[in-house]
C-alpha cells in the first residue's frame, strides 16, 4: 500500500510517499498565500519523485498547523504523534524528540513503539523558533547558513538578556554597534535560542536518546548550542524537516484512527 504524509508547516509544506513502510519519494514547497495550492503542489511533487500516480495512493494523511485545508486527506494526526512515529522509524533508540520549526517548537517523550508519552510546546511566541535566528541573521545581513557557520568559530558566551525577538534584535544591533566579533554575536544568538528550547524540553524530563528534527535542525550553530545546553549528544537525521511528514504517512499506513 502507498501512503502520503503531508506536513503543513508555517514556512514550508513537506510531503513524503511511503510504500509498504519504506520512503520512496518526497517534496518540499514553500507555504504560499493559498495553503491548499501549496499542499497540492507538495503532494504532486512527492508523487512525481516516487514515480507513482495519484490513483495508486491508498491513503493521504495531513498534519501541521494548517492540516484542515488539506481537504483531499482522509486522515489527520497531531504533529506530536507524527514526530514520534517518524523518529523511531529512523532511530529506534530515541526516547525524546525535539522539533524546532519556523514558528513553533516542541519536545516529545515517546516509547519504543513511537507512541507519545508527554510533550511540551511553544507556539505563542517566536523566541525559541526558527524565526528568531532568521530575524537575527537579517539584522546582521548574512544568510542563515552562514550565520550558523559563524557561530561555530566562537568560544565566547555573551548573554542576550531579552527573550522577545523584537527586543533581542535591538540587543544584537547594540552588539554590532559595539563592534563585537560577528562570530561571538552569532553564538550568543544560538545560545539564547538553545536555552529557550532546552528549558522547554527539560519540562518533560528529557530521556536519552535525544533527536533533533524540523528545519532548524539543519542549523549546525543551533545544534552545537543545544548539545552544550543539554549536556547530551543529539541525533539529527539527514532530512530533519521531513520526519513529521514521514511519521504521518506511517501512521496512515498502519491504519491508525485519525485524531
Amino acid at each position: 500500500m502507498i501512503a502520503v504524509g503531508i506536513d503543513m508547516g508555517a514556512k514550508n509544506v513537506k510531503a513524503v510517499v511511503v510504500r509498504d513502510g519504506e520512503q520512496i519519494g518526497r517534496s518540499i514547497f514553500e507555504t504560499g498565500f493559498d495553503r491548499y495550492v501549496s499542499a497540492r503542489k507538495a503532494f504532486e511533487g512527492a508523487l512525481q519523485d516516487a514515480d507513482v500516480g495519484e490513483e495508486d495512493v491508498g491513503v493521504v494523511v495531513a498534519t501541521g498547523a494548517g492540516k484542515k485545508v488539506v481537504t483531499f486527506a482522509e486522515k489527520q494526526f497531531t504533529v506530536m504523534a507524527c514526530n514520534a512515529k517518524g523518529i523511531v522509524r529512523l532511530f529506534p533508540s530515541v526516547r525524546t524528540v525535539i522539533d524546532v520549526g519556523a514558528e513553533e517548537a516542541r519536545a516529545i517523550r515517546l516509547d519504543e513503539t513511537g507512541k507519545v508519552i508527554e510533550f511540551a510546546i511553544n507556539e505563542k511566541c517566536a523566541a525559541g523558533a526558527g524565526a528568531f535566528v532568521e530575524a537575527m541573521a537579517r539584522a546582521m545581513e548574512v544568510e542563515v547558513g552562514e550565520f550558523a557557520q559563524l557561530s561555530l568559530a566562537s568560544t565566547k558566551a555573551i548573554p542576550i538578556n531579552a527573550q522577545c525577538v523584537i527586543f533581542a534584535e535591538s540587543e544584537v544591533v547594540s552588539l554590532i554597534h559595539a563592534e563585537t566579533d560577528r562570530a561571538d554575536i552569532a553564538k550568543a544568538v544560538h545560545d539564547a535560542m538553545a536555552a529557550r528550547v532546552g528549558a522547554m524540553s527539560q519540562r518533560i524530563k528529557v530521556q536519552k536518546d535525544i533527536a533533533l528534527v524540523g528545519g532548524v535542525a539543519r542549523n549546525i550553530g543551533f545544534v552545537q548550542s543545544l548539545k552544550t545546553f543539554l549536556k547530551e549528544d543529539l541525533l539529527v537525521p539527514p532530512d530533519p524537516e521531513f520526519v513529521t511528514a514521514l511519521g504521518a504517512a506511517l501512521l496512515g499506513m498502519e491504519g491508525e484512527e485519525s485524531d
Binding site: 498565500f33 511566541c125 517566536a126 524565526a131 530575524a135 522577545c164 525577538v165
Partner: peptide, 17 residues
C-alpha cells in the same frame, strides 16, 4: 496578540491578500 513577529508575518500575508 501574543507575538509581534507573528503579527508582522500575519500582516504581510493580509497585505498580499
Amino acid at each position: 496578540n501574543t507575538c509581534v513577529l507573528f503579527a508582522k508575518s500575519e500582516a504581510l500575508g493580509l497585505l498580499r491578500e
